[in-house]
């Protein structure tokens, strides 16, 4: 049973780590646009778009 003295606080520390990660992700704005984040993950970045009007002259 003595092992619990180490294991239980360890489990709590891991939980605390998870809580810290959640609070950090909340603070850094990762929950601001859940719909957009879902799409960003699968979008390709290599599709060029025509330059803006002023450059085309």
């Amino acid at each position: 049973m003595e092992v619990m003295v180490i294991l239980v606080p360890l489990a709590l520390a891991l939980g605390l780590l998870g809580l810290g990660a959640f609070l950090w992700s909340l603070k850094s704005g990762q929950y601001e646009d859940l719909d957009g984040a879902a799409w960003r993950a699968i979008s390709d970045d290599d599709q060029p778009l025509p330059p803006p009007a002023q450059e085309r002259g």
């Binding site: 646009d33 799409w39 699968i42 979008s43």
Partner: peptide, 26 residues
Amino acid sequence: CAGCMAKIERGLSAIPDVTLARVNLT
């Protein structure tokens, strides 16, 4: 959709001097 998002962000980022163009889809 994602298409609109990419189109807008790229279209505006292409303007010189624009430092950020970010769509919030929600």
